[in-house]
Amino acid sequence: MSIQHFRVALIPFFAAFCLPVFAHPETLVKVKDAEDQLGARVGYIELDLNSGKILESFRPEERFPMMSTFKVLLCGAVLSRVDAGQEQLGRRIHYSQNDLVEYSPVTEKHLTDGMTVRELCSAAITMSDNTAANLLLTTIGGPKELTAFLHNMGDHVTRLDRWEPELNEAIPNDERDTTMPAAMATTLRKLLTGELLTLASRQQLIDWMEADKVAGPLLRSALPAGWFIADKSGAGERGSRGIIAALGPDGKPSRIVVIYTTGSQATMDERNRQIAEIGASLIKHW
């Protein structure tokens, strides 16, 4: 067993022997301040990774656009098919120029040779490549099948209805392509620590998230040296922004954090800054 596999296998073990965790309302004060600064709703939840206990939450059962955070769930569904012998990570998928959609920095470079399922998941999570996500959605049967996968996990809230990039439209009061912070946090925890996926697939999923290259201005910008984070960000229309993450000190994750916002007129930089400040408060009061 590799060191990384050992780390993920012992996530519940280490967490069980940690000192009790206590909620700190100071972080919620910052979440509410972010709402004021952005002029928009902000949803927040913080779960203990081992027990699933909610440590703090704000608007945990209000719907927010998922945006690209759905790509972690998508690759979880792909990995479940791999575990069941219905898919192979090494299978190569070929596609054409007509398949390319807006923001496809990886797939646009491989029109000639195609990409493997493993490479597509890596591109979808680490670079948020939209064509990679659409190609992977095709392998599982489309958005409705991802929703069905989530329902089978016990998540009857999260739903995907459309493809990239239309799913980022974020129309107010439109339930399409949305989740709730509580539902997303619980589902992410199941994917990373539950028995739904094999140990190898859980490790692969967290490795992809740990290698995320496009979430630097968010929670990662607030992390002290030595902290662990595996995350996936999302951005959408109407001032929408979000991030889902597993993080913790001492090089291992111990909490799940989900943050979503929508309806702001603020710039992307300002949305990023507010999420980073929430992260800084979380870490300060850990």
Results as ranks from 00 to 15, higher is better:
residue 96 S to Y: 11
residue 253 P to A: 13
residue 131 T to V: 05
residue 226 G to N: 12
residue 159 R to M: 07
residue 137 L to E: 04
residue 243 I to L: 11
residue 86 Q to P: 05
residue 98 N to E: 15
residue 93 I to R: 03
residue 153 M to H: 10
residue 275 I to C: 05
residue 198 T to Y: 07
residue 217 P to K: 14
residue 257 V to S: 03
residue 255 R to T: 05
residue 212 D to C: 04
residue 208 W to N: 03
residue 112 T to K: 15
residue 275 I to K: 00
residue 205 L to T: 03
residue 22 F to I: 07
residue 74 L to N: 02
residue 188 L to F: 13
residue 15 A to D: 02
residue 24 H to I: 10
residue 11 I to A: 10
residue 170 A to H: 09
residue 29 V to T: 12
residue 10 L to A: 13
residue 79 L to P: 00
residue 285 H to K: 09
residue 99 D to M: 12
residue 232 K to E: 00
residue 184 M to Q: 04
residue 9 A to R: 09
residue 183 A to K: 08
residue 160 L to S: 11
residue 220 R to A: 04
residue 107 T to S: 11
residue 277 E to N: 11
residue 222 A to K: 15
residue 283 I to H: 05
residue 77 A to T: 10
residue 143 P to C: 06
residue 120 L to N: 02
residue 266 A to E: 12
residue 190 K to C: 10
residue 58 F to A: 09
residue 98 N to Y: 14
residue 216 G to L: 08
residue 182 A to M: 15
residue 137 L to Q: 05
residue 118 R to H: 15
residue 217 P to S: 10
residue 100 L to N: 03
residue 254 S to L: 10
residue 144 K to S: 15
residue 49 L to H: 05
residue 15 A to M: 15
residue 228 F to R: 07
residue 63 R to N: 06
residue 189 R to G: 12
residue 150 L to P: 01
residue 138 T to I: 11
residue 98 N to H: 14
residue 263 G to M: 07
residue 46 E to F: 09
residue 237 E to S: 15
residue 89 L to K: 04
residue 206 I to N: 08
residue 80 S to K: 14
residue 219 L to G: 03
residue 196 L to M: 13
residue 53 K to Y: 13
residue 108 E to H: 11
residue 160 L to F: 10
residue 110 H to S: 08
residue 222 A to P: 10
residue 215 A to S: 09
residue 189 R to V: 09
residue 23 A to G: 14
residue 147 T to S: 11
residue 119 E to Y: 03
residue 106 V to H: 08
residue 65 P to T: 04
residue 70 F to H: 07
residue 261 T to Y: 06
residue 29 V to E: 14
residue 160 L to H: 06
residue 112 T to I: 14
residue 193 T to K: 15
residue 98 N to P: 09
residue 47 L to P: 00
residue 84 A to E: 12
residue 251 G to E: 11
residue 118 R to E: 15
residue 63 R to W: 04
residue 135 L to F: 06
residue 121 C to L: 05
residue 11 I to C: 14
residue 160 L to K: 02
residue 249 P to Y: 05
residue 77 A to P: 01
residue 154 G to K: 07
residue 65 P to A: 06
residue 249 P to M: 08
residue 55 L to W: 07
residue 75 C to V: 13
residue 207 D to K: 12
residue 135 L to M: 10
residue 125 I to F: 02
residue 59 R to F: 03
residue 69 T to C: 05
residue 264 S to A: 09
residue 228 F to W: 05
residue 8 V to W: 08
residue 159 R to S: 08
residue 199 L to C: 15
residue 6 F to C: 10
residue 166 E to G: 12
residue 181 P to G: 04
residue 130 N to C: 05
residue 227 W to Q: 01
residue 146 L to R: 00
residue 55 L to K: 08
residue 190 K to G: 13
residue 138 T to Y: 12
residue 221 S to Q: 13
residue 129 D to I: 00
residue 149 F to Q: 07
residue 247 L to C: 07
residue 124 A to Q: 02
residue 174 D to Y: 03
residue 205 L to V: 06
residue 268 M to T: 08
residue 42 V to D: 00
residue 220 R to C: 03
residue 203 Q to Y: 09
residue 33 D to I: 14
